[in-house]
C-alpha cells in the first residue's frame, strides 16, 4: 500500500516537474541546439541570461513585477487580516453579505471584467500605471486572503482573547499581543498565496498595460523578440521564465519556516 502511494506521488511529481526541467534546459541551450530534443543540453551557455538582463525591457518588467506584487500583497494582507478578524469574531450587520460578496468576487470570471476595467481605467487615467494593476490585484486577492485568514482566526480559541481582556488588556492590546502572534502562520500563508496570484497574473497585466512603464514580466515575455525579427526568442523566453520563478521559490522558502503547524497547541486542552 505504501509502495503504491509512493509510486503515485512520484508520477505526480514527475508530471509537475518535467515541464519545469524542460524550460530550465532550454534556457541553457544555444540557439543552434534548441530544437535537438535533448533534456540535457549538449552545449551549455549563459548567453540567454546575458541577453535578457542586457535588454532594458526585461529588467524594467522585473522591477514592475516585484513592486506591484509586493504592494498588492501588503495591502491585501493588512486589509484581509482586519476583515477576517471581524468575520471570525464579531457579529455585525451585513456580515453574511460581506462574506457572500467576497465569495462572489472570487468566483467571478476575471476575463469577463477585462474590457469594462480597460474602459474604466482609461477614463480614470490609471491605465498603464502601477495603480492600474494594484487595484484589480487587491480586489481579486482580498477574498482569498479573507477566506484563508478567517479560517485561521476561527482556530484560535476565543478564550484566549477573553483571558487577555480579564488580564487587563484593551481590545487592541488583546489583538496585538495575543491574537496576532498566533495568527502569524495564517498571515504568512495568505501572503504567499496572494503574492503568487499577483506575480503570475497574465490577463490583467497584458490588458491593462501598454508600455514598459507598468508591464510586468509575464506580459513582457510575450513581447520578447530575437536579435532580428527572424530569430527565435525561445531561449530568452525560457531564461526569463526561469528568472521569474526564482522570487516565488525564495518567497515560499523564506516564509515556510514561519508556517509552523500547531503553534497554538497548549493553549487549551485538547
Amino acid at each position: 500500500m505504501k509502495l503504491r502511494w509512493g509510486l503515485l506521488d512520484a508520477v505526480v511529481v514527475v508530471f509537475a516537474l518535467l515541464p519545469v526541467l524542460w524550460i530550465v534546459s532550454l534556457s541553457f541551450k544555444t540557439t543552434a541546439t534548441l530544437t535537438d530534443g535533448n533534456l540535457i543540453p549538449r552545449e551549455w551557455t549563459l548567453e540567454n541570461y546575458r541577453t535578457i538582463f542586457q535588454t532594458d525591457q526585461f529588467v524594467r518588467a522585473l522591477v514592475n513585477s516585484i513592486g506591484i506584487a509586493l504592494i498588492s500583497t501588503t495591502i491585501a494582507v493588512v486589509l484581509g487580516t482586519m476583515a477576517a478578524y471581524a468575520v471570525a469574531r464579531l457579529d455585525f450587520p451585513g456580515k453574511g453579505a460581506l462574506v457572500g460578496v467576497s465569495l462572489l468576487i472570487a468566483m467571478f470570471p476575471q476575463v469577463s471584467l477585462v474590457s469594462p476595467l480597460f474602459d474604466i481605467e482609461r477614463q480614470l487615467g490609471i491605465f498603464d500605471t502601477w495603480l492600474g494593476l494594484i487595484l484589480p490585484y487587491i480586489t481579486f486577492s482580498l477574498p482569498l486572503a479573507i477566506y484563508t485568514l478567517s479560517a485561521f482566526f476561527k482556530q484560535i480559541p476565543w478564550d484566549l482573547e477573553k483571558a487577555a481582556k480579564m488580564d487587563g488588556a484593551t481590545q487592541a492590546q488583546a489583538f496585538r499581543k495575543v491574537i496576532a502572534p498566533l495568527a502569524a502562520p495564517g498571515v504568512f500563508t495568505s501572503a504567499i498565496l496572494v503574492f503568487i496570484f499577483c506575480w503570475n497574473d497574465f490577463l490583467f497585466a497584458i490588458s491593462l498595460t501598454s508600455t514598459e512603464r507598468s508591464r510586468t514580466v509575464p506580459a513582457a515575455l510575450s513581447f520578447f523578440t530575437g536579435a532580428s525579427q527572424f530569430e527565435d526568442p525561445t531561449g530568452a523566453i525560457s531564461a526569463a521564465a526561469v528568472v521569474i520563478t526564482i522570487p516565488i521559490i525564495l518567497f515560499v522558502l523564506f516564509f515556510q519556516r514561519r508556517i509552523v503547524a500547531g503553534l497554538t497547541s497548549g493553549a487549551v486542552k485538547g
Binding site: 480559541p157 478564550d159 483571558a163 487577555a164 495575543v178 497548549g266 493553549a267 487549551v268 486542552k269 485538547g270
Partner: peptide, 8 residues
C-alpha cells in the same frame, strides 16, 4: 477558564 486559555 475551563480551557485554561494559556497564551501558547
Amino acid at each position: 477558564f475551563q480551557s485554561y486559555a494559556l497564551y501558547p
